[in-house]
């Protein structure tokens, strides 16, 4: 016979910080268990870049002029592809509802989820991009900027995309709708991301473009969590 003491419910100490770290760890673990979901955007990215020379022409001169735009658009679409699953599993199994009921503000709890998404989608894409840049004969000297602009920009993409994902998670077949909602909002990031690479190729200053990307990321970090949380609440109610 085991002795059952008086039932006491206590808030674990540490509060918000613990919750954020725990959510990040949980999401990373869950995502890493589904390897294919992490790999799919990367494979998609590589495939799209492979298709372009086949569709256009294998001339390195032509390819190198359109390479910055191609790489960025392909990476953007790859991010988009992975967005639908951002909240899907948690929505279906009810853990999202649990998060909403917890004492911590939902806006803070979605942040580690988005961070996990960026760490396993945006960052790998940014690291992989230089390899694909070689295939498109991207001029030397712009590879570092390519990675950096993608890493910075894709964080904004994850944040803004999460708003769209949260709005469409309760909708059946929300995938197409999601891209319709999110793509127009991606345009500024695309413009400054490619701008940075083109500036690097032209030899002019890269800093302003990267600063703009950083500013957009700061703004998205500040505002997007509230929009994501509000959207999740709507999706969970409807």
């Amino acid at each position: 016979m085991s002795h059952v003491g008086p039932l006491t419910l206590r808030e674990p100490r540490g509060g918000l910080g613990v919750a954020v770290v725990a959510t990040l760890r949980r999401d990373m673990t869950l995502k890493l268990r589904r390897r294919s979901e992490v790999m799919n955007p990367l494979v998609f990215f590589a495939l799209v870049i492979t298709l372009f020379p086949l569709g256009v022409a294998p001339e390195s001169k032509l390819l190198s002029t359109i390479a910055p735009g191609l790489l960025w658009v392909a990476a953007l679409l790859a991010t988009l592809l992975s967005l639908d699953s951002l909240f899907r599993v948690d929505f279906d199994d009810g853990s999202l509802e649990q998060m909403m009921l917890s004492h911590q503000p939902l806006a803070m709890l979605v942040l580690p989820k988005v961070a996990a998404h960026w760490l396993l989608t945006g960052l790998p894409l940014a690291l992989m991009a230089p390899l694909l840049g070689v295939l498109l004969s991207l001029p030397a000297g712009s590879y570092g900027v390519l990675s950096l602009s993608l890493a910075l920009g894709s964080a904004s993409l994850s944040l803004v995309g999460a708003i769209g994902a949260a709005l469409t998670v309760g909708v059946s077949r929300g995938g197409v709708l999601l891209s319709l909602l999110v793509l127009p909002l991606y345009i500024p990031v695309l413009i400054f991301g490619t701008g940075a690479i083109q500036a690097a190729i032209a030899g002019s200053g890269v800093a302003p473009h990267l600063a703009m990307l950083g500013a957009m990321l700061a703004a998205a970090l500040m505002l997007a969590p509230w929009a994501i949380a509000a959207s999740l609440r709507i999706s969970l109610n409807g």
């Binding site: 909602l181 959207s231 709507i234 409807g238």
Partner: peptide, 16 residues
Amino acid sequence: GAYAHRDSGSRAASVL
């Protein structure tokens, strides 16, 4: 239009 529940659709469109 995508939401089955009108009030949710209204709120989602407002957020967007």
